[in-house]
Amino acid sequence: MSTITRRAPTPHAGFVLVAAMIWAASLLAPVVSAAAQQATPTAGARDVILATTTSTQDSGLLDALVPLFNEQTGYALKPIAVGSGAALDLGERGEADVLLAHSPAAEQAFMDAGFGAERRTVMYNDFVVVGPEADPAGIADAPSAVEAMTRIADAEAAFVSRGDDSGTHQLELGLWEDAGITPGGGWYVESGTGMGDTLNIANARDGYTVTDRGTYLSLGDRLDLEVLVEGDPSLLNVYHVITVDPERYDTINAAGGQAFLDFLLEPATQEVIGEFGVDRFGEPLFTPCADNACGVLPSTQATPAATPAA
């Protein structure tokens, strides 16, 4: 041991600390320079916060739309993906400038309460009821989604709910309500997670669930679940864009929100939406439907709450 001459290493803890600080500082540099470059349109007014449902992010649609929007308008859109309920809540608090949601009843309440400035239909996709191939509740030949739910409840077949106040969850609850059933008991599970996780749980438990078609398709072969009920009008999943009323908070980026609303309704954007997913799944995940031009909605739902500003 003593024959080896060990040199006391020269850099000590102080050196390490300083080195760590320098490293950290160098990492901060791009942030600072990026902040300094924020010049268009005007510093501070550039950020637009979009509160949206997870399905738009999970499906990848936002990843396709956001760069387009930023490029065309010079704004920096910050999409925050949460459940529809949380998205509306962020709007109500003035923490978001514009919302993209698919929870028609809650949206209407939001507009009625005066939190929103303008609400416009953007697109839709559809929900499907999926379940194990064996179909223990026998819902495949059910005449309607509501009847399918009734059969599931009667059979007490395993059902996995999102349970997260999302648009999908709201729609599912609407179906139960229409069926006159208050779901509960050992067969009814609330996952409290996003659509993808919920599907995985349903798959593992051989249970039924209500899902948007896009997420179901994107999970693909991974699932043993089959589409058992589809095409029912009550399973339509309609997305609306809502600008948050700028009167209530002076922190709202009204111009930015309006710009995103306008962007979504533009024919070019609508075309992008209509083609999204074709390359990956062979079919589109969303059907563009600016201002209900596709006529998918019953007239009562189609009326924009506010007169569209041209």
């Binding site: 992010q57 499906s59 910050k78 999409p79 925050i80 993808g196 996780d197 997420t215 994107s218 693909g220």
Partner: peptide, 24 residues
Amino acid sequence: GGNIKGETRVLTTATVLEVGRGNF
């Protein structure tokens, strides 16, 4: 952070997102 692509997406939040998307 909000898990914003290109801005606040880090390894953990991206992982959560990809699980949600089914991209295991």
